[in-house]
C-alpha cells in the first residue's frame, strides 16, 4: 500500500505548469516592451535603453516577490512585504547616504550600503516587535510604518538639500521608477539576487515547517533562529539592491506570493520559483503600462503598482482577519 504524495505530486505539477506559462508570458511581454515606445525600433534604443530597463524591471520584480515569500514565511506574517516592514525605506536611505558620500548610483558599492542600512532597519523593527521570543504580526507593521516614515524623511532632507541627486528626486525614491535603469545598475544587483535566491531555496523546506509554530518547528529539529535570520538576510539582499537602483515599489512583494500561493499551494520551494517569475512578469508589465499608457508622458511605475495593489491589500487584510479572527 502506498499513500504518499498524490497531493504533493499534483502541487508540483501545477508549479511546473505555471512556471512555463509565466515564462512564456514574460518573454512575450519583454519582446513587446523592447519594440514599443515613442523612440521607435532603432537598435541603439532597444539595446542600450529598453533592454536594461526590461531586465531591471524583471530582476527587481523577481527579487521583491521572493523577498515577500521569505518575509511572510520567516515571520509567519501574511502581511509582510519589504516596503511594509521598513526594508525598502532603509535601503533607499542607504543609497542616498552613499551618494552623499560620493559613491555613484547603480554601482556594486551603492548596493552593498543599501543592504547594510536595510538590514539595520529590519533589525530595529524586529527588535521593537519581539516580546518574550515572539514576533508580533501587527507590531512588525507598526514598526515598519515608523521606520519608513523616518527613513523617507531623511531621504527627502538629503535629496532636497544637496545637488548630487540629479534626476533622483524625492518622488523617485518613494514611488520608484525604471526610467534611470542602465546596464551597470542591472549588473550591480545580480550578485545579491543570485546569493539571496540561493539562500532562499536552501531554507525553503525549514520555512515550510515554520507553519507549525516556533516551538514545534524547533522540536522537529529545525534550528529556528538560524533559519529565520538566513531568510531575513536573503529577503534584504533580494529587495535592498533593487531599491538602490529603482526606488521603492510597494505591494509587489506582498501580493505576488499570495496570488501564487492560491495557484500552487504553500510549499516554499515552488513558491520561490513561481513567485520570482510572476514578480518579474508583473513589473515588466507595470513598467510597460507606465511607459505606454499616456505616451509620451511616463507614469511612475510605483503609482501603477499601488493603484492596483492597494485595493487588493485591503481585500487581503480583511480576508486574513476573517480567517484568523483577529491579530496576534
Amino acid at each position: 500500500m502506498t499513500i504518499s504524495g498524490i497531493g504533493g505530486r499534483s502541487a508540483s505539477h501545477r508549479a511546473v505548469t505555471w512556471s512555463l506559462v509565466l515564462l512564456v508570458a514574460l518573454v512575450v511581454i519583454a519582446v513587446f516592451a523592447l519594440y514599443s515606445g515613442a523612440a521607435g525600433t532603432d537598435s541603439v534604443v532597444i539595446w542600450n535603453i529598453r533592454a536594461p530597463r526590461v531586465a531591471t524591471a524583471a530582476a527587481v520584480g523577481a527579487g521583491l516577490a521572493i523577498a515577500g515569500v521569505l518575509l511572510q514565511g520567516a515571520l509567519r506574517n501574511p502581511l509582510a512585504d519589504p516596503a511594509l516592514v521598513g526594508v525598502s525605506a532603509g535601503a533607499a536611505l542607504g543609497a542616498v547616504v552613499a551618494a552623499a558620500l560620493g559613491i555613484s548610483y547603480n554601482t556594486f558599492l551603492s548596493a552593498c550600503i543599501a543592504v547594510l542600512t536595510a538590514s539595520i532597519a529590519i533589525g530595529l523593527v524586529l527588535w521593537v516587535a519581539s516580546s518574550q521570543g515572539r514576533i508580533e504580526v501587527v507590531t512588525v507593521l507598526l514598526g515598519g510604518i515608523a521606520m519608513t516614515a523616518f527613513a523617507a524623511a531623511v531621504v527627502s532632507v538629503i535629496v532636497t538639500a544637496s545637488d548630487f541627486a540629479g534626476s533622483r528626486t524625492v518622488s523617485f525614491w518613494t514611488t520608484g521608477s525604471f526610467a534611470l535603469a542602465n546596464w551597470p545598475g542591472f549588473i550591480s544587483m545580480v550578485p545579491a539576487l543570485v546569493l539571496g535566491t540561493a539562500i532562499g531555496l536552501a531554507v525553503a523546506r525549514p520555512l515550510d515547517i515554520f507553519a507549525l509554530g516556533d516551538s514545534a518547528a524547533f522540536a522537529s529539529g529545525v534550528p529556528v533562529a538560524k533559519i529565520r535570520i538566513a531568510a531575513l538576510l536573503a529577503a534584504v539582499l533580494l529587495s535592498a539592491t533593487g531599491v538602490a537602483v529603482v526606488g521603492i515599489i510597494a505591494f509587489v512583494g506582498l501580493l505576488v506570493p499570495h496570488a501564487v500561493r492560491l495557484l500552487i499551494g504553500p510549499s516554499h520551494r515552488a513558491l520561490i520559483i513561481v513567485s520570482a517569475l510572476a514578480g518579474a512578469l508583473v513589473l515588466v508589465l507595470a513598467d510597460t503600462a507606465a511607459r505606454l499608457l499616456l505616451s509620451p508622458i511616463e507614469l511612475p511605475v510605483g503609482a501603477v503598482t499601488a493603484i492596483v495593489g492597494a485595493p487588493l491589500f485591503l481585500v487581503l487584510v480583511s480576508s486574513t482577519r476573517a480567517r484568523q479572527g483577529g491579530w496576534a
Partner: peptide, 22 residues
C-alpha cells in the same frame, strides 16, 4: 505541544513528513 499553529494549506502527509527532518 499544545500551542500548534494552523499550517494553512499543507496536506496531512506534508505535516507528518516534517517529522523526518532530523
Amino acid at each position: 505541544s499544545q500551542d500548534l499553529a494552523q499550517s494553512f494549506g499543507f496536506t496531512v502527509y506534508d505535516v507528518v513528513s516534517w517529522a523526518r527532518t532530523p
